[in-house]
Computed example of a mutant assay.
Amino acid sequence: MLDDITSVTIKSALHGLAMRQRVVADNIANIETPQFLAGRVSFEDTLREAYENGHPEAAAPSMARSLEPTRMDGNNVNLDHETLSHIDTNLRYQLMLRAVDHKAGLITSALRTA
């Protein structure tokens, strides 16, 4: 029942956002670790392309290390960037959860009227 293209796309988005949350937390935890390079998760472009091709389940998030300049200790974690990324990611995650709730509500309503 929840295997239509919209549900699969939402599930893929939640997977990518959850991965981004973990990477941001790891970045913040390692803000003082010498030579640590911040991780960056990307999935939106891949998900958009997979959705347009009708196969959002094929989209997978990817993580790469940041090539931004480093401090003297070789670390490039920027707390301001990580904080904003954390807030943005959490808001997007909440939005996806609301979409799941809305879809479940529609299904429940349809079943009640049937």
Rank of each mutant, 00 (worst) to 15 (best):
H102C: 00
Y51P: 05
Y93Q: 05
N90V: 02
N90C: 03
A58N: 11
G74Q: 10
N78G: 02
A59G: 14
R65S: 02
V100K: 01
R71D: 08
V100S: 00
M63G: 08
N53M: 15
G105C: 05
P69A: 15
R71Y: 08
G54W: 11
N78D: 10
M63C: 10
S109K: 13
R92A: 07
D88K: 00
N90W: 03
E57S: 15
D80Q: 15
I87E: 04
A50Q: 07
D80H: 14
A59V: 13
N76H: 00
S109C: 07
A64N: 15
M63V: 15
A110R: 09
Q94P: 06
T70Q: 14
P61F: 15
N76W: 00
A64G: 13
G105A: 09
S66H: 11
L106V: 06
L91P: 03
H55S: 14
P69F: 14
D73L: 08
A60W: 11
E68A: 12
P56W: 13
T89N: 14
D101V: 07
V100I: 02
E68H: 08
Y93W: 07
R65C: 04
G74M: 10
Y51C: 09
L79F: 15
S109R: 14
D73W: 11
L97A: 10
R98T: 08
R92Q: 05
G54Y: 08
T113P: 01
T89P: 05
L79A: 13
A110G: 11
T108E: 12
D73M: 06
M72K: 05
D88C: 00
A59P: 09
H55R: 14
N90D: 08
A99E: 04
T89D: 13
T108K: 15
L97D: 07
N76R: 01
R71V: 09
G54Q: 10
R92V: 01
G74V: 12
D88H: 00
H86F: 14
H81M: 04
P61N: 14
T108Q: 10
N90L: 03
L97G: 13
L91A: 07
L111P: 00
A114N: 05
A60K: 15
A58T: 11
T70F: 10
T89W: 05
